[in-house]
Amino acid sequence: MNALLALIKRDMRLAMRVGGGAMMGALFFLIVVVMMPFALGPDLNLLARIGPAILWLGALLASLLALDRLFATDHEDGSLDVLMMGPLPLEVAVAAKAIAHWLTTGLPLIVISPVLGLMLNVELRAMGVVALTLLAGTPALTFIGLVGAALSVALRRGGLLLAVLVLPLTIPVLIFGVAAANAAIVGPAPFGPPFTILCALSLASLVLGPVAAAAALRHGLE
C-alpha cells in the first residue's frame, strides 16, 4: 500500500513539475473543441445540438494522446526496470500510474468542460450531465489507452500507432457516453441504461487494462 501511494504521488508530482504534462491534455481538449465551429460554422443552435458529441470526441482524443509517453519515459531512463523489481505486482504498479495519469490529465478535462460547453452554447443543466458522463467514462479511456501505451513501449514505436491501436477499442465508450448525455438532454430514451453501461465499461477496463498492459510490458522485455 505504501509503495502504491508512493508511485501515485511520484507520478502526480512529475506531471505537475516543470516539463510535466498535467495541463497539456486540457490544452489539447480546448484547442480541438475550438476548432470544431470553424469547420461546422458558428450556428449556435447547431452547436448546442451537437455540443455533447463534440465535447466527448475532444475528451476522447485528449485523454488518449496524452497517454503516449506514460511508460516511454520510465522505459528510457531505466525506471521501468526498477519498478518491475518492486514488491508490487506489475499489474498494480501499472494501475497506479494510470490512476495518477487520470488525476492529472483526465480530471482537468472534466473541470474545464463546462467552460467549453458555454462556448458551444450547451445549456448549464445539460453541461452538468455531460460532465457527469465524462466523469464516469474517462477512466475507461485512460485504462484502455494504458494497453496501447504499454504496447507502444514494447514495440518501440510511439505517437500515431497508439491512436491507431486504441481508438477502435474506445468506440463503445464513445457510443454510450454520448448516448447517455443526449438521453438526459433531449430524450426520449431514458438516461439510466446507457449511463449504467458506461460505468460498467469503466469498471471492466479498470480490471482488464492493467492486466493487459502488464502482459504487454513483460512480453516487450524479451
Partner: peptide, 18 residues
C-alpha cells in the same frame, strides 16, 4: 442573451489566447 457568440473579434482573441 448568451455567454459566448462566435463573433469575429472575440474569436480572433480566442485564437490569440490559444
Amino acid at each position: 442573451g448568451t455567454y459566448w457568440v462566435w463573433d469575429a473579434r472575440l474569436t480572433s482573441m480566442l485564437v490569440l489566447f490559444l
